[in-house]
Design a protein around this nucleic acid. Structure first.
Length: 198
DNA sequence: GGAACGATCTGC
DNA sequence: CAGATCGTTCCC
């Protein structure tokens, strides 16, 4: 099966619908490729979302067209990468939290400063960005044009993904908007506040 | 102008 | 389990 771009019509859906569909898709950044195995959804009416209080200089990309990267900086040292979804004005995005390194492993190991432990390269949103060298300069980049892309290589999303509460939030915990590929050791270690069940 | 707080990671 | 570390947001 040959890889084809994830269609815009998929990304233009609501984040909680799109998110589980992004499981097992492949994120390509430069020479590096990562299979996404853990995601979270954020929406404009969601108190846990950066977009909750309307657009700001930081979050304006979230309110733009679907199919762009929203990359933010947090905790004074980490970056997190999202794929913008929905329609302009919505403020929706899917946070990429974990992935399986498929290509460019050496480069990722250099950036992460780890050796011989592929699981440690992308099992967390900050780690994934460090491995792929994603920072604020990538904010707003259109996927599929240039050095970043989201592609479907034929591996379908899991029929029964793990569904849990999102990690690291204090509000909006009632929304179970975290999805992961069952059994994958490449999901983040971040512990959701809710139960880890389907 | 200033304070509080992160959609995290690491090492102890 | 605490510390690192600084951009963003909000309040005065």
């Amino acid at each position: 099966m040959r890889a084809r771009p994830v269609p815009m019509r998929l990304l233009a859906g609501d984040a909680p619908v799109v998110a589980p569909q992004l499981l097992n898709k492949v994120l390509v950044v430069g020479r590096c490729r990562v299979r996404i195995v853990e995601v979270e959804a954020y929406t404009g009416d969601d108190p846990a979302s950066h977009s909750f209080r309307g657009p700001t200089p930081r979050t304006e990309v979230m309110f733009g067209r679907a199919g762009r990267l929203y990359v933010y900086f947090t905790y004074g040292m980490h970056h997190c990468a999202n794929v913008v979804t929905g329609s302009p004005g919505d403020g929706q995005a899917v946070l990429l939290r974990g992935g399986v390194p498929l290509g460019g492993l050496e480069l990722m190991e250099q950036r992460r400063r780890t050796v011989g432990r592929p699981v440690e390269l992308c099992n967390g949103p900050g780690k994934l960005c460090q491995a792929l060298a994603l920072d604020r300069s990538w904010d707003g980049v259109v996927l599929g044009r240039g050095d970043a892309a989201l592609v479907d290589d034929g591996v379908p999303p899991p029929l029964a993904p793990i569904v849990t509460t999102r990690v690291g939030i204090r509000v909006g915990v009632e929304r179970r908007w975290r999805w992961a590929v069952p059994g994958s050791p490449y999901v983040s270690r971040g512990r959701p506040s809710g139960d880890d069940r389907r």
